[in-house]
Design a protein around this nucleic acid. Structure first.
Lengths: 335, 335
DNA sequence: CTGAAAGCGCTAACAT
DNA sequence: ATGTTAGCGCTTTCAG
């Protein structure tokens, strides 16, 4: 097998035209008679011609490919985003390269290097770290459009992301309004310099004119289900015992729910629970969890729009723009 | 910004060598004095040079990119496979393009066209249909290595996939051995020409020397959680009433579990349940469901190995090889 | 209306 | 030990 692929030249020979004419015909140039074009198209079809995108990219300087770089695609929220991004890109006639950083800055660097070699026209990045991003800035500075899927204040990146502060504010405000006076929050984000959710929660407490102590912060070791479960003993042993829980992550919340079930704590009677970023169960239409809903779809659509726009306006580096999507609060069985 | 990227020529000018020498140096040719090489590397580093993979591909005829085409990345099983595949490829220095077909043959064709234009070195495909794959055969016939992640008997593709027959056999055998004499099976695969699970289940019945009627087949409208839930009334109304359930899909099984909980059917006391392809909850370490476990990791690793091997042995079209992975049976709370 | 020539950035064969 | 030349498949001037 292994036939060499059909080239422009092959069509040229088969039709008697020159490669140039064939090229024009295939791209539907108006300055060619319909007759010629049809003849060429027909032969191209018959020969099963596919334009060599590689060669085309070399001359045009654009690959019509964007790179998507994420920490971990196993996070259902990111999976959903990845899917939507791919869809939107493909609709726009763009290809997508994918790489995962596993939340390691080193891997992230490697992946970016890969994308750079492959000459992607732009990158969508869900970064490994909130602090270390000089390597990403370098890309943007080199004039390659980069769009961040997370807000990194002061970083100067184009951004389309969730407004975590607003989300946390909504969630905790809801709890306050429901009469809760002792609210526990599970958030390991501090270690990564991600204070938004905490800030939003605190603001809600202030807005409700509750004392600062109405919100107590707990930092699980990670953001896995097991971590959420593990810290609950500590949470429920606190005096005064919290009557509501706000978890900065869906899996933490689910872990907490598990602990409650196993320890005879009735949710939401004894403990109201609100999670965050809920997608996992929601994808199955089965989540019993109240959540701040990560708007992956909207972010993805806006993100793709924006980066394609940036690519189009190649000329100058317009000022970076940050769009924050305010997430909806979805109240289900646990509140 | 938008500086034009650094080329070989730029380094050549900066060092006084020719582009050729620079190229050789960067690729560590042994026929260059170490001195020269170091000088070149240093300048390349300083200038922040990245090889233009596009140009390199044009001359080498290989893009060191493979295309991954799946029906839907939101299926956690496939997500996991995608992640592992990306990892393995990146370890091997390959880039990955991703596209989703949404189980539509038309989209699949479009995506394949895209991959073809981009001149991927090979494709990993989880196909949209078990019947319609002429467009994929065409790719393989054109000499582009294709590896199928699903077994399509008689299709002549290189394949690394789950042995669904063995999986179903294991599951139903387990139920038979546990003394069940009336087993219901949920499987909508017949419509797609996917009979393996059914065949395996029937074989298990025969092997257990039970009458054919010991297994009754139910066909849900789809494979969603809701579909699984919806069909349970019918299942449990059957006479004699089944004491065990084998669902061909994880979501069907979970849907069934929901129905049981809402209808006072105690699992596993009144009904033993085994699902299939379990990854969703398992990813959270929290599945209560007994399952036939899709070995996404193993499949991915073997699949990548195989396609890279095929690419390496470019020369001839060796006979297609089919590797079937026998899935493990994981017994949890529901059995 | 169509063809010939040049060149995108790189590598491979062939000089020097 | 290094430089020159040609060419990968395509698009883009520029001629005819």
């Amino acid at each position: 097998m292994a036939k060499p692929p059909v080239r422009l030249k092959d069509i040229a020979e088969a039709t008697g035209f020159s490669a140039n004419t064939v090229s024009l015909a295939l791209r539907g140039s108006p300055r060619l008679p319909v007759e010629t074009r049809e003849r060429v198209l027909e032969v191209a079809e018959r020969l099963n011609y596919f334009p060599n995108h590689v060669a085309r990219s070399l001359v045009s300087g654009a690959t019509r490919t964007i790179g998507l770089l994420m920490t971990d695609i196993m996070n259902p929220t990111l999976t959903l985003a990845a899917r939507t991004i791919e869809r939107e890109l493909s609709r726009a006639g763009y290809g997508m390269m994918f790489a995962a950083s596993d939340a390691s800055v080193e891997s992230e660097k490697r992946a970016i290097g890969l994308f750079l070699s492959y000459r992607v026209d732009g990158m969508l990045i869900y970064p490994a770290s909130h602090n270390t991003y000089a390597h990403i800035s370098a890309v943007a500075d080199a004039g390659i459009p980069v769009l961040m899927l997370v807000e990194l204040p002061g970083s100067g990146f184009d951004t389309v992301a969730i407004d975590d502060r607003a989300g946390a504010f909504k969630a905790v405000s809801h709890l306050c309004k429901a009469g809760h006076r002792h609210i526990a929050m599970l958030d390991g984000g501090k270690a990564h310099g991600n204070l938004d959710k905490m800030k939003g929660a605190q603001k809600a407490i202030r807005a409700a004119r509750l004392p600062k102590g109405a919100l107590s912060l707990f930092e699980p070791g990670g953001h896995s289900l097991a971590d959420g479960s593990a810290i609950m003993a500590e949470v429920m042993a606190t005096d005064p015992r919290p009557t509501a829980l706000f978890a900065s992550t869906d899996s933490l919340a689910i872990g907490a729910l598990h602990w409650c079930r196993e320890n005879g704590v009735s949710v939401p009677r004894d403990l109201a629970v609100i999670g965050y970023d809920n997608t996992e169960m929601a994808a199955y239409g089965a989540s019993p969890l109240s959540t701040v809903n990560y708007a992956a779809d909207e972010i993805s659509r806006l993100g793709v729009d924006r980066i394609l726009r940036r690519i189009a306006q190649r000329e100058d580096a317009a000022d970076p723009e940050t769009t924050l999507i305010e997430p909806d609060l979805i109240i289900r069985g646990t509140t």
